[in-house]
Design a protein around this nucleic acid. Sequence first.
DNA 1: GGATTATGTACAGATTATGGACTAATATCA
DNA 2: TGATATTAGTCCATAATCTGTACATAATCC
Lengths: 380, 380
Amino acid sequence: MSSRGVRHDSMRARNLAVVLDAIHRTGPHTRAALAERTGLTKTTVSSLVADLLEAGVVTESGAVRGGERGRPGVAVSLSGHRVATLGLEINIDYLAACVVDLTRTVRLRRTRPADNRSSNPAEILERLRDLAKETTAEAESAGLRVIGAALAVPGTVEGGVLRSAPHLGWRDVRVEDVIDLPLAIDNEANLAALGELWFGSRDTDFLYVSGEIGIGAGLVVGGTVFRGTFGLAGELGHVVVVPDGPACRCGGRGCLEVYAGQDALLGPLDSVAALVARLESGDPRALEACERAGHALGVALTSAVHLVDPGRIVLGGIFARLFPWLEGPVADGLGARLGQMRGTPPALVVSGIGADAAVLGAAGLVIQRILADPAEVLGL
Amino acid sequence: MSSRGVRHDSMRARNLAVVLDAIHRTGPHTRAALAERTGLTKTTVSSLVADLLEAGVVTESGAVRGGERGRPGVAVSLSGHRVATLGLEINIDYLAACVVDLTRTVRLRRTRPADNRSSNPAEILERLRDLAKETTAEAESAGLRVIGAALAVPGTVEGGVLRSAPHLGWRDVRVEDVIDLPLAIDNEANLAALGELWFGSRDTDFLYVSGEIGIGAGLVVGGTVFRGTFGLAGELGHVVVVPDGPACRCGGRGCLEVYAGQDALLGPLDSVAALVARLESGDPRALEACERAGHALGVALTSAVHLVDPGRIVLGGIFARLFPWLEGPVADGLGARLGQMRGTPPALVVSGIGADAAVLGAAGLVIQRILADPAEVLGL
DNA sequence: GGATTATGTACAGATTATGGACTAATATCA
DNA sequence: TGATATTAGTCCATAATCTGTACATAATCC
């Protein structure tokens, strides 16, 4: 919102972004096609593409021969050979890192199991630093240039500071010096939603529901994550399902998390795998837990649909694994409750990118920034 | 999202908007101060201001003499003398119109009582057309140039078409030829929120809760209304308060509207004024209805706060008039439920601009468009 | 093989912002 | 009271960037 004036250099910066975005959105294009799409002249596009080539973000991928007459054009596409980004994640029981190139290819992936509940922040950040350093070094020895990084955390983030991560027991932790690169920090659910956007369905409008120990959600509208006023939007887990239901850890009562959080779903079991096994064998207690969770999820999602109007609803995390048992109750609840208000309720689908959603999304966030302003990020 | 390239003319268009926005946001400024704020040079600012002067959107309002040394500058401020916008509203029992100038001064205001429930769309639109024509003519005879219009309707709008206005009994009505100007159509709650933004507190981040016959909400984040994927966001009235509560008109059960809609609040009474009278005289039935509505509103707003993270909550419409009796239960509910999750719950305040919020907001929407792209709108 | 058609580049021209010099108008200070 | 300092706004030559036409290039069509 700083509303600075536009000068010649920002005009060019913007046009670089426009051309790069066109290449990214609809695949390889010849310069002529890019000119058509962007409304710029062929001359200008040629000049912009030359800069992008030099920066290593695009490559010429050979002649396009469509059988049409006329001189064939040279297709320009995103290059996966030079620029890459680093995604990081701190979760309850592991640290993760990944390196992704501009073609959305995952080049490296590292996970370190760890019991982060019983360690203090400094210790964990130290281990994260090691992991980040190692991963980046490895990527660089493969010829990649890691441009930036983002970190997913299971908690609320305000202004780059981790405000509160209840399941880690952290409050107001400032994450610094993890790596010698610009580092963005964001909530696990928001980044998982970006993961779905970049590495999943490629749909640009959806509500990603992240079932981890807590329940979060990331809303993507028009390809952008909606964060609310203070970056705290998407706390689906604490939407009220039963106004005077059981007390929730958050201080409220009858929150979704009480009915559909991991603890509620697992009951005495100690892993999701165990729950799935019970479900597959038809265990009535397990089935009932899923039924109850699905019902609660249907109620909470109804409120969410009314409030934020998502294009579709994507279930991720443990909900993805439990999808076969959840889909029925959730869809029924949505269908029945949304009734008259809209033509059809938003489609309910399962996320395609399992447990890695958040780390991948973190890397995706940085890719998104490169595409949004290549000149700034790459120093063109 | 069309992502067109930037050319010289769009650079200038953007800079016109940047300068105009700076004038609008922080009051009158000298050219030198504008140059400072926008990062443009004095030369460029002078040239841009010259264009804005010619278009009649700004005026030179005399020398600024601050007692400082140096040549005094000439303050440039928004002009209320030429450009104006038209706000229109169709509501259950009246039609309304207003003309507002760029300084946010309401120049004209017309209301026509009408029982729109018992008329068909064509008839009402005909009457709206008359009202619009008269109001514009009057504004023009006062020397104003009405540039554009917007219409508030009590229902959902998708792509310029009124999809569903249950309280009017309308479905899929295309509003056309109402006036010989660009006409935007939007939901009453969204526009009332804009009304609050433009003519109320001037705060840029809040959730406006519109209590009319139905209950809607308009979320403003960073000065922009959040509309969701299909423009259907903000249906606070159908957030689930009690999952198996009484059936709601919408097909769901236990929606907020069932507990806090006008019908629920009024009971057998026939006007808000009557209810207020009862409340003031301490009538227990009336007090209990308010208590119950406030409680339900607290529950629904808790869910809303978790999902969309508003800066503050502004109660408008009938809730504004009932604020003294609602504030307690709503604030208690929010405070108790939000508990640990955030430092303090968002402030709960009453809207300053009574029943006119939506029409005013409609006019404000058009002003917002002028400020966002004066070149486009004014043909510079 | 010549006509046709489309791609991509070269170069002059157009548009817009910049930057330093200049004029204008006021306050401060001797 | 007059000289000086200081700030505002304009003028004009220059710079950055995009446009548009011309042209070389490389295919297909017949």
